[in-house]
Design a binder for these strands. Sequence first.
RNA 1: GGAGGGAUAGCGAAGUGGUUAAACGCGGCAGACUGUAAAUCUGUUCCUUCGGGUUCGAUGGUUCAAAUCCAUCUUCCUCCA
Length: 371
Amino acid sequence: MKIKYELIKKSNETKARTGILHTNHGSFKTPMFMPVGTLANVKTLTAEELKAINCGVILANTYHLWLRPGENIVALAGGLHKFMNYDGPILTDSGGFQVFSLAKKKDITEEGVHFKSHIDGSKLFLTPELSIGIQNKLDSDIAMSFDECPPFPVTREYMTDSVDRTLRWALRGKNVHDNHHQSLFGIVQGGEYADLRRYSALKTVEIGFDGYAIGGTSVGEGKDTMYNMIDYAIDYLPTSKVRYLMGVGDPIDIIEGVIRGVDMFDCVLPTRLARHGNAFTKKGKINIRNAKYKDDFEALDECDCYTCKNYSRAYIRHLIICNETLGGRLLSIHNIRFLIKMTEDIRDAIASDNLLAYKEKFIKEYKNSIV
RNA sequence: GGAGGGAUAGCGAAGUGGUUAAACGCGGCAGACUGUAAAUCUGUUCCUUCGGGUUCGAUGGUUCAAAUCCAUCUUCCUCCA
């Protein structure tokens, strides 16, 4: 069975909407935030802990799992869900972003991308067919098209070629996609160019996918530019399909994305910040390493997560300062829960047509407070 | 009692006449992080009214110039009695 997006309610004050995405591994409400679990694990967390956080779907990575342990091992295990002991929905990213982020020397051709392994420097060649083939074997619920994620900024000429190439790659991927219970998403590119975003959206929809992503975001373009990137494309995506903004996870960006009509987000931010000693709180992001938390025995935030119910700032600070793994774990649990809870509140706000008021209140508290 | 080796910024440790307010590491204090080559990276860490001031166990000396050379003292470590 392919996924099915069920639209529940459209906001009457913004482009936001609530919905439910039905998958073979359960349904989840949207808007939703997806924690990133690149190597078939959300760093430091177990499947049980992710469940307890109430996260609806997680993301894993094609490129990384291709290299280690290899898609055949995952297939032998019975697919990604069994391999990693996670029975909820899983989305796999195509590896397009890895070509952008870790290959300093890459050769992008019509056929695919030549680049070097980040592990041993060996020569690799990734194509749309290969990426989709790997994802078929990984057996995630949602596969992503293999796209080119250009850096920012890039000339209009380059972006024009890139958008067309990504479209051809999307079609090639769709043509070889062979997993009847895995869905496939197309990715809209086009950088900061309004007409190219529109074109990319229209053409991607023309090919036809089970859901649509907006990519090429969060590559250093700045917030306003990123919001524009959404605006330029979103109206050309069908309301009957789910929309996913790739790589975005700053709390305020999530609200701005939802207001613009986005249903799904993913980001390494909550887990990476956690391992680096930072916590999201309603009153802004805090760095738990700061000396002022030395004897602060309060919870991180007013929050229902395991961490906040059981541990103090002073204790977590101590763990982080001492480089104890538990510190990063506890902060990861909290940070993910913070974003998941945020999407729960956002859904409620959409349901009661209070999203703009929610946004105003959230931003006011988040930005203007000194914790 | 004798012989030898040390004493450098919060700690460890380079430096052995000028380019040294003094490498580097740790610790401390802050910052960054947006489809994870990130439990990583960056800045800062004697005082300052930012002009400068005071440092390398202590005191005295040699020199234009000393953490660096000399003398004495204090103190620590190792070995021999």
